[in-house]
């Protein structure tokens, strides 16, 4: 059975997404941008590429991912108390 990269990415799922996101962070560190290839890998882990087959939309998505990586850096830089819980902790009232 042959399997292309996109199909493999779907199967690999989360692991691919995590690796691709890490690659996106590396792209930004090294070049200030996220490469088209990295964004395509991120996309393929999500499902169909849809409108992001189009170069102009892909470029927008590259910018959006780059911006989110900048946001992520702000979050990761914030000093948090280890006991601080997130506001999504499940509870039964």
């Amino acid at each position: 059975m042959t399997i292309n990269r996109r199909q493999f990415a779907k199967v690999a799922g989360t692991a691919t997404l995590a690796a691709a996101w890490q690659q996106a962070c590396t792209d930004v560190d090294e070049t200030g941008e996220v490469s088209a290839e990295t964004v395509r890998t991120l996309l393929d882990a999500q499902g169909p590429r849809g409108i992001y087959e189009r170069p102009d939309e892909l470029d927008r998505l590259r910018v959006a991912v780059r911006n989110l990586i900048g946001v992520q850096a702000q979050l990761r830089d914030f000093p948090l108390d280890p006991d601080e819980q997130p506001l999504v902790v499940f509870w039964r009232g």
Partner: peptide
């Protein structure tokens, strides 16, 4: 779409802050 790609750990960090 980018938000869907963001690691869950960062979403949780945001909710912790």
């Amino acid at each position: 779409m980018a938000g869907r790609m963001m690691p869950a750990a960062d979403y949780l960090t945001a909710q912790r802050i």
